[in-house]
Simulated scan of single mutants.
Amino acid sequence: MSDPAEIDVLLVEDDEGDVLMTREAFEHHKLRNQLHVVPDGVEALAFLRREGEHAGAPRPGLILLDLNLPRKDGREVLEEIKSDESLRSIPVVVLTTSQAEEDILRSYNLYANAYVAKPVDFERFIDVIRQIDDFFVSVVKLPR
């Protein structure tokens, strides 16, 4: 398999512990992707639309989206991303603590590309991040 290209990954997460674990997973597995972090849904949409302080933001190749966010929750963000013609082709992986069937169903109905329940165990969390990266960066062909 050829060497995968580096992509920008947008993590939309308000829990500092989960942000830290995701950063560690990227470092632990020497993932070459650039990780950008925003703490809520309003900031996520500003980043994606390159508004305000995010005017120079890169277009992410992958979005890791928590559902339970302040200001604008992940479900609303997902709905806005997938209804925006200029953003809808960006793959969105819902990465959340919720294992509720209604959240899973609603996320897929809003066109999430994958739904992953966050493991509480650190080693398992790192493994999940690596698998997401392997799949979306090494296996899947993404639009540029």
Score class of each variant (00 low, 15 high):
23 R>T: 14
20 L>G: 00
38 V>P: 01
18 D>R: 02
95 L>S: 09
66 D>C: 06
117 A>W: 01
46 A>V: 04
62 L>M: 06
12 V>Q: 03
139 V>N: 02
134 D>N: 14
28 H>Y: 15
5 A>Y: 09
10 L>W: 04
72 K>M: 14
60 P>T: 07
22 T>D: 04
34 Q>N: 15
107 S>K: 05
125 F>V: 02
36 H>C: 05
99 Q>Y: 13
108 Y>W: 07
98 S>G: 12
68 N>R: 12
105 L>C: 00
139 V>G: 01
21 M>E: 08
22 T>P: 01
36 H>E: 11
140 V>N: 09
93 V>Q: 00
86 S>Y: 01
67 L>M: 09
133 D>F: 12
51 E>P: 01
71 R>Y: 11
122 F>Y: 14
88 R>A: 03
36 H>I: 13
22 T>H: 12
105 L>N: 03
76 E>V: 13
112 A>N: 04
57 A>K: 07
122 F>W: 06
76 E>A: 15
61 G>V: 03
61 G>F: 05
119 P>V: 10
134 D>F: 09
112 A>V: 09
124 R>Y: 00
30 K>D: 07
43 E>P: 01
71 R>P: 02
37 V>D: 01
2 S>H: 11
119 P>E: 12
78 L>K: 04
144 R>S: 09
11 L>R: 10
124 R>H: 08
74 G>T: 03
12 V>S: 02
73 D>G: 04
54 H>M: 11
116 V>M: 08
131 Q>G: 09
90 I>Y: 02
72 K>Y: 02
87 L>E: 05
52 G>R: 13
85 E>Q: 11
84 D>V: 06
98 S>C: 12
80 E>H: 06
46 A>Q: 15
55 A>F: 06
79 E>Y: 08
78 L>P: 03
94 V>K: 07
95 L>I: 05
108 Y>A: 12
82 K>C: 07
81 I>Q: 03
135 F>P: 06
51 E>F: 04
50 R>G: 05
12 V>L: 02
21 M>C: 11
68 N>P: 00
66 D>R: 06
103 D>K: 03
82 K>V: 02
71 R>N: 14
1 M>W: 09
61 G>T: 03
82 K>D: 04
99 Q>E: 15
17 G>N: 14
56 G>H: 10
9 V>Q: 02
71 R>W: 06
59 R>C: 06
142 L>S: 06
98 S>F: 13
75 R>V: 10
142 L>R: 15
64 L>C: 09
138 S>Y: 05
77 V>D: 03
10 L>H: 01
39 P>E: 12
141 K>F: 08
26 F>T: 13
93 V>M: 01
80 E>M: 07
68 N>Y: 09
62 L>N: 05
16 E>V: 15
1 M>C: 12
